[in-house]
Nucleic acid binder design. Structure first.
Lengths: 329, 329
DNA sequence: GTGCTGATATGAACCGTTTCATGAAAATGT
DNA sequence: ACATTTTCATGAAACGGTTCATATCAGCAC
């Protein structure tokens, strides 16, 4: 009657196989071991249904095989998509993900960083607009969409090219007068380059353009005011519209509907992100699609790559055009 | 020149404060300790910026303070919402969440369970329709939306009441002839009770009703066929429609648009879940709202509650009606 | 001053791994 | 057959905490 009720340890395996602890460890880690030993150990592992305790492993190695993801939430489609792909990319490499939703709360963000220190994660992937975030130099950090400092690599879509692509697409679709609507953080960040790219594209394709730039605190209603200003005799004085995100596009489309402006007949609209209804249906509007999966892969790759030499400060990944109902063609 | 570059340990704190290891441990865990000792230790902790290594803690205690969430993905709105709230509920209790996206892959699901054993999580919260899932009895498991076995508690919305509520709401809104559209797993599960609830509500309110029940593999186009069958002279022969999920409602609304049926003038539509555009805007359609936050809290509560005595086999939480553009009023 | 009690600080042992110095056995050379 | 080298299994020590049996000491009674 000597049933060990506890989960088997490496010691139990060693006893069962009649070998030393170190030998079992080697088998587990795929290190060279005599064939007959290997077989005996493998049999014992099977017999006992042994699984390594990765926390004990981690404690010894000083590595936790865990990466924290710092992100405002997991409900907005872009964030949900990022979370999903980063999680997958990490699991693929046998890493765990510690999800830290910050809800744009800056205090929470800093607290998470501390918590993350307690949990001894191996690194952090963070999407944060907190300007005051301080990042201990000893923790590897990859930032998404915003350059935090020279020692922190930033991964983002090629937002400039995306803005340019939006302008060119509108030009291709026959627009002559276009507008750009933006709301977001005034902090220097990658998505802000969409504006410059768009301007660039407009100049290249000889489009006249207007802009309305809001900041995070501002009311979305100001876009409505902007639209009204540009209505003459029930018609807008532009025929193409580029919104900084699909979310903004969504809100503006509702305003346009109220104003009885037909989309895409009277004005064509392009958003940014590549948001799909229910995460899998068609695009909610015509859009510049962010390569979320590639961004996720790149973040994880950069974070986990061993040779720390020369991590690039900024990686821009190519975007593509996604057709939705808000443009013709 | 004896700078310890490594992170400080409890030993360093003890040395700094001039006390024993056990004393520091007690301070950390809030156990009674002489006032003068406590102060010295706390000063030392502050001075060294010490943080406990929770993995070492966990190894000794045999607890990992980690819970696995087994869920198909984090992109579909309902799943994203669940993920978010479960994560929050766990963080609140100082637990970590290991996110396991299964993408409906049954092999992956079972593999995750194994992986989860390796990682020695303290428990699992799972939303899975895998009928073959075997769950080791020694791992605490809480199932969402589906009863897996007598020893596994199931947490869900009150789906029966939700179906009933949909019927009653349609009746209140003036409908006389209604229909129910469902696609989903044929496995016995909680969401399937929406049908019975709806029937019940129809009978109570004297509504005549039709149903179209598909199974997971079936083509969504069959709903289109159903609609066509019920079109006479360009009008549907029912004036209220209940869809098993907002996602189905979304797809059916597109079909209705193509068929030139006006919503909500010709037919009013109610979905289920409480999906919001971009996770924060208005409901994408009129809907029975699942109390996601309560479900999350309940799962976590049930999973972590110490006294294992008498865990309820099924917990149903009340739903509510969420008004969207697809119903009048 | 002695003996007893209660309160509380101490540190060795342990949790489940990995690592590495040690030494035994096998392989090779002459 | 013996010396030398190579190979490789062994198990103690360490990782950073917690626990608990033991040691220390102050307070009190006589």
């Amino acid at each position: 009657m000597r049933t060990k009720s506890t989960t088997p340890t490496i010691k139990d395996v060693a006893a069962e196989a009649g070998v030393a602890l170190g030998t079992v460890s080697k088998v587990i880690n795929g290190l060279p071991v005599g064939e007959s030993y290997r077989i005996r150990v493998e049999d014992a592992i099977r017999k006992l249904d042994y699984h390594v305790n990765s926390y004990a492993q981690g404690m010894k190695a000083g590595k936790t095989h865990t990466v924290a993801l710092l992100i405002p939430n997991t409900q907005e489609p872009y964030f949900a998509r990022l979370t999903y792909h980063i999680n997958l990319a990490l699991l693929k490499r046998n890493y765990r993900m510690l999800l830290c939703s910050t809800d744009y709360n800056q205090t929470a963000e800093q607290e998470y960083i501390t918590m993350v220190q307690q949990n001894k994660v191996d690194g952090i992937i963070g999407l944060t607009y907190n300007p005051e975030l301080t990042i201990a130099e000893n923790i590897p950090f990859i930032s998404i969409d915003r350059s935090i400092g020279p020692h922190v690599p930033c991964v983002a879509s090629d937002n400039f090219a995306g803005g340019q692509m939006a302008a060119e697409k509108l030009a291709d679709l026959g627009c002559r007068h276009v507008a750009f609507l933006r709301i977001g953080s005034s902090l220097s960040n990658e998505p802000n380059k969409r504006k410059a790219g768009f301007e660039n594209g407009c100049l290249a394709r000889d489009l006249s353009y207007n802009m309305k730039i809001l900041e995070d605190g501002d009311s979305i209603d100001e876009f409505n005011d902007f639209l009204m200003e540009h209505m003459h005799d029930g018609r807008l004085d532009f025929d193409g519209l580029f919104c900084v995100t699909d979310h903004v596009a969504f809100q503006v489309l509702k305003m346009l509907q109220k104003l009885k402006v037909q989309v895409p007949e009277d004005v064509q609209v392009i958003g940014f992100d590549g948001t799909r209804a229910f995460g899998k249906e068609e695009y909610v509007c015509s859009t510049i699609v962010q390569p979320t999966e590639d961004i996720a892969e790149m973040c994880v790759e950069l974070l986990l790559q061993e040779n720390l030499t020369a991590k690039p400060p900024l990686v821009c990944l190519p975007v593509s055009y996604g057709h939705g109902w808000t443009t013709r063609e």
